[in-house]
Design a protein around this nucleic acid. Structure first.
Lengths: 232, 232
DNA sequence: CGACGCTTTGACTATACTCAACCCGTGTGG
DNA sequence: CCACACGGGTTGAGTATAGTCAAAGCGTCG
């Protein structure tokens, strides 16, 4: 059923429309149809790799359904998670404009559907519809800002503070609930925050002892005192 | 004299041409002339701020002459240097496509000349000449890759290794000399590498004791054993 | 039910930060 | 031209932070 609800605006099935919003949502139906002819869909099982570092890049990948983790290996071989993609997010763009070789790994955290646009098709689209470029530029600059914020945090904040900031920023600002749903295992979270599972575990219990949070289940944390967390 | 040498390709004074190369060097003379009418020049003395975090952004800044440091303040107020701009590099782009508020500081490390293009003028150029978008996209994706590399290093490498990597990557691949010219004071370098001046000083002497480098002067370091440095 | 992987707990340790003192080079003013 | 002051750089001692390693607990999925 749900699969066949169509979007009023572009006439696409609803989840297609949603996943393409950030880049294409200003296009009208005829142009959208053109874009659709260029899109290839592919599904990945949980745990499957979407691409690997060193592989040739030939497409932009947009997450339609599921969740994807992007990670790198450092010079000394340690894994570090760079970000988690949710439906509507895209990746693969780094290699599209330069090297054409991926510098990171992408793997499906759950069963995932991906929309792909081939490198050449995308470049043609960009030249034809400059507005799309602006969207991607805007998305890039967001990502860059976020990456630089993360860099600065690693360089200047203690682990404790990085965890606290992560929790606070994971709060859904729209809902009134102060419960955070961890988007990944604590092992992965450790990698994302540049620390170890042991340290995460210890710090969370410290926060709990201080009355700042309450660990409801493994993946659910209630934040009792936002301001307190940020003063750590 | 040198100021009046003109570029064969675009007809501009040479240093203008050089500083605009990364973004505009595919344009022919008539288009280049159009771009030139949109460019405003400004000079800054050593130590002067070009922009500050929180200020409204209304331009893209291209370094024509001199050296500029871009830095942020972390949540807890510590300064961290994100990058150093040399002639031809640009900045200010983050705010151009989104927030329109700077999230970092830019200050001149030496007497500096800057070319500026106003936000609106640039956006019009991008819509008119999609190729420029591709250049900026390419530059963005470079920067993003670099920033993510830096993030991964902070998250996974020890200070020693970060210093070693910095030295090796500062080697001018073109010249045969293995002498690195530090582009900033050790105090700033410490901030860039997420450590302290004391630690930098100590590690450099450790490298020297191990025969990996030779400290010629304060700002000149000869690298004796590249591979050894990377095995630390 | 069993096994595997994630998480927790504990004890120990390394890494690198802090603070304080001192050194040095450069630029300024007498 | 010298003296001094200032900022950057170095050195040393002490310590906090967070990582490592090992073992045991827990949950979940086949």
């Amino acid at each position: 059923m749900k699969d066949h609800v169509h979007c009023h605006h572009c006439g696409l099935e609803n989840d297609y429309c949603i996943s393409l919003v950030p880049i294409f949502n200003h296009l009208e139906k005829p142009q959208m149809d053109e874009v659709m002819t260029l899109i290839h869909s592919k599904s990945y099982k949980k745990g499957e790799d979407i691409y690997q570092s060193g592989h040739t890049s030939d497409a932009l990948y947009i997450v339609r359904k599921g969740r994807v983790k992007i990670y790198r290996l450092s010079e000394s071989g340690k894994e570090q998670i760079l970000r988690i993609l949710n439906p509507g997010d895209f990746t693969g763009e780094l290699a599209l404009f330069n090297e054409s070789v991926h510098d990171a790994y992408a793997s499906a955290l759950s069963d995932t559907d991906i929309c792909m646009i081939k490198r050449n098709d995308l470049q043609n689209l960009l030249l034809k519809y400059p507005n799309i470029s602006m969207r991607i530029l805007s998305e890039f600059s967001n990502r860059l800002a976020q990456s630089e914020t993360q860099t600065t945090r690693f360089a200047t904040e203690r682990v404790e503070m990085r965890i606290a900031l992560f929790l606070v920023e994971s709060l859904d600002t729209k809902s009134e609930s102060h419960v955070v749903d961890l988007p990944m295992s604590k092992k992965d979270l450790a990698s994302f925050l540049g620390t170890t599972p042991e340290t995460i575990s210890r710090k969370l219990f410290e926060f709990e002892d201080a009355g700042l949070i309450k660990q409801i289940t493994n993946k659910k944390i209630e934040i009792m005192d936002v301001d307190g967390l940020l003063l750590i």
